[in-house]
Simulated scan of single mutants.
Amino acid sequence: MKRFLKGLKQSVPIMLGYVPIAIAYASMARQAGLSFGETVSMSVFVYTGAGQMSAAGMIAKGIGMFAIVMTVFIMNLRHIIM
């Protein structure tokens, strides 16, 4: 348990760095017309922040779901290298 708490304490600065990105995404998703549940679901199921941002922007422009899924998929291909 001590090791877990130590790790949690050490990870706080990294977690705080994600807060501004999360706020920006949530704002963008809500402006795109996504509900609270849809906004949270995208955060849970879409791996990258860039994918979330681009999907929200594409939804706001009325682009079809197939194009959105393919765009986010292609954007995430970069993770194969990692």
Rank of each mutant, 00 (worst) to 15 (best):
A24R: 03
H79F: 15
T39R: 05
V44I: 15
Q10D: 15
M53L: 14
A32P: 03
A67R: 10
T39H: 05
S27F: 13
S35P: 06
P20R: 07
S11P: 00
A26P: 00
I21C: 01
L16W: 03
A60Y: 06
F66E: 15
M28F: 01
E38P: 06
F4D: 10
P13R: 06
K2D: 12
G17Y: 01
L16F: 12
F45T: 10
Y18N: 10
V72K: 06
A29V: 03
I81K: 06
A24L: 13
V40H: 02
G51P: 07
K6D: 14
L5S: 09
A24N: 05
Y47D: 12
L34H: 02
T48Y: 01
T39P: 05
A50P: 00
H79G: 10
F73P: 00
I14G: 07
S41W: 07
M53C: 04
A50G: 11
G7Y: 09
L8K: 06
T71D: 12
V72E: 04
I80G: 04
E38L: 04
M58R: 01
K2I: 05
A24W: 07
V40Q: 04
S11R: 11
G7W: 04
T71M: 14
T71Y: 10
L8A: 14
I21M: 12
K9W: 14
M70R: 05
M82N: 11
A56Y: 01
F36Y: 14
V40K: 09
G57P: 01
L77Q: 13
G64E: 13
I80F: 14
F45S: 07
I21E: 06
L34D: 03
V44A: 13
F4H: 05
M75I: 12
I14D: 11
I80L: 15
S43G: 15
Y18A: 13
L34N: 04
A50Q: 13
G17V: 01
A26R: 03
I74Q: 06
M28W: 00
M58E: 02
R3W: 08
G62C: 02
G64C: 10
Q52H: 03
M65K: 13
F66W: 10
A29K: 01
S35W: 06
E38R: 02
M82A: 14
Y47N: 12
G33A: 12
V12A: 05
I80D: 07
V40Y: 08
P20G: 08
